[in-house]
C-alpha cells in the first residue's frame, strides 16, 4: 500500500488531501473569498493560505485517521500558479517531509487535475478539456506526454467569467462562476458576442472587453438583464470550448471526453459537451465541485502515480515555478 499526502495552493484555494491506492481518505479545503468587484491578489492570497494551512493539514490527517508515520510520500504543487501562495504551501510540505523523514515530490498542477479526473471517473484515455481560472487547454495523451492540442491565446475561460462577474458586482461566494451559472438559468435573451475560435485555439480577452464595454450601457438602458448577459456569455464561451474539444477528438480518433478544472463543474458546460458527445457516439466524463475545483487529493493522486513509477524531488530541486506547462512532464506511469 502506498499512502500519499498532497498539498495544493496555487490560486485562491488551499487544500490538503490523502490517497491510499486510489482511495480518497480525506480532502479538506478552504477558499479565499474576496468582496464583490475584487479579484484575489498574490500576497493577500498567500496570507490567507498561511493562516489556515496547518489547520487544514491537521484536518486531513484526522479525517483519514492516519499518523504521519503512515504516510509514504509528501506531494505538493510545484507550479504553475501564483508565486507567493505556491511558496507558502511548498514551505510547509518541505518542512513536514523532513520532520517525518518522508520523500518529497513536486507535482505539475495541470497533471494533478488530469490524474484526479481519471481516478474519479475511470476514463481510460480521454481527450481532456482543462478549464479553470488560470488555464484553458485541450489535451490528449500521446507517447509519454500530455500534449496540448489547443489552448487559450490570452486569458483563461474562468478568468473571463470571474472578471465579468466583477464588472457587474456578482458575489465571489462560493465562487463567481457558480453565481453566473445560477443567474444564467434565468436568462432568456441571447445577446450576440464575438466568437473567437482560431484553429485549435481560443481567445477570450476580446469577448471580455466587448461585454465589459457593453454591460453597463445595455443594463442601464434596459436592453437586457444581468441574467441575459450571464446566459449569453456562458453560451458563447462554452460553444467555443465544445468546438475545439470536438476537433481534437476527431484528430485523435478519441471516443472519450474528460472535463477537469474549476469551470468543469458548470453543469451547462457539461450539458453542451454531452450533446456533442452523443452525436459522435462518445462518452463524457466529469466530476463535481469536490474534485473539479483545486484540491489536495489531485496533487496526492498525481504524486501517487509519479512516486510509484520512481519519481522523487530532492529538497534542493524543490523550488516553485509560476510557469510550468503540462507537456513539460514526462508521463512515466502510463504506456
Amino acid at each position: 500500500m502506498t499512502v500519499v499526502i498532497g498539498f495544493e495552493g496555487s490560486a485562491n484555494k488551499i487544500g490538503v488531501g490523502i490517497v491510499r491506492d486510489g482511495e480518497v481518505l480525506s480532502n479538506p479545503r478552504r477558499t479565499y473569498i474576496t468582496p464583490p468587484g475584487q479579484g484575489f491578489l498574490p500576497s493577500e492570497t498567500a496570507k490567507h493560505h498561511r493562516s489556515v494551512i496547518l489547520t487544514v493539514l491537521r484536518e486531513a490527517l484526522q479525517q483519514a485517521g492516519l499518523k504521519p508515520a503512515d504516510i509514504d510520500c509528501v506531494a505538493y504543487t510545484k507550479g504553475p500558479g501564483m508565486g507567493a501562495p505556491l511558496v507558502t504551501v511548498a514551505l510547509v510540505a518541505r518542512t513536514v517531509a523532513q520532520l517525518w523523514g518522508k520523500p518529497l515530490l513536486g507535482v505539475n498542477h495541470c497533471i494533478g487535475h488530469i490524474e484526479m479526473g481519471r481516478l474519479i471517473t475511470h476514463a481510460n484515455n480521454p481527450t481532456v478539456l482543462y478549464v479553470s481560472g488560470g488555464n484553458t487547454q485541450v489535451i490528449a495523451y500521446s507517447e509519454r506526454r500530455y500534449r496540448i492540442f489547443g489552448e487559450t491565446l490570452d486569458i483563461a475561460v474562468g478568468n473571463c467569467l470571474d472578471r465579468f462577474a466583477r464588472v457587474i458586482k456578482i458575489s465571489n461566494d462560493p465562487s463567481p462562476g457558480y453565481n453566473i451559472e445560477q443567474m444564467a438559468k434565468r436568462g432568456s435573451k441571447y445577446v450576440e458576442l464575438p466568437y473567437t475560435v482560431k484553429g485549435m485555439d481560443v481567445s477570450f480577452s476580446g469577448i471580455l472587453s466587448y461585454i465589459e464595454e457593453a454591460a453597463h450601457k445595455m443594463l442601464s438602458s434596459g436592453q437586457c438583464t444581468a441574467e441575459d448577459l450571464c446566459f449569453s456569455l456562458q453560451e458563447t464561451l462554452f460553444a467555443m470550448l465544445v468546438e475545439i474539444t470536438e476537433r481534437a477528438m476527431a484528430h485523435c480518433n478519441s471516443q472519450e471526453v474528460l472535463i477537469v478544472g474549476g469551470v468543469g463543474c458548470n453543469l451547462r458546460l457539461q450539458e453542451m459537451m454531452g450533446v456533442m458527445c452523443k452525436e459522435r457516439g462518445a462518452r463524457l466524463f466529469a466530476t463535481d465541485e469536490r474534485f473539479c475545483i483545486d484540491n489536495g487529493v489531485m496533487i496526492a493522486q498525481a504524486g501517487w502515480e509519479m512516486f510509484r513509477s520512481g519519481h522523487v524531488t530532492e529538497l534542493s530541486d524543490s523550488w516553485i515555478t509560476q510557469r510550468y506547462r503540462t507537456d513539460e512532464v514526462e508521463v512515466t506511469w502510463r504506456d
Binding site: 498561511r50 494551512i53 496547518l54 493539514l57 491537521r58 504521519p68 507558502t88 514551505l91 510547509v92 518542512t95 513536514v96 523532513q98 520532520l99 517525518w100 523523514g101
Partner: peptide, 12 residues
Amino acid sequence: LVLETMIEFGPP
C-alpha cells in the same frame, strides 16, 4: 511558518 510547522508537527 516553518517554525510553527515544526512546533505543531515535530519533533523530527
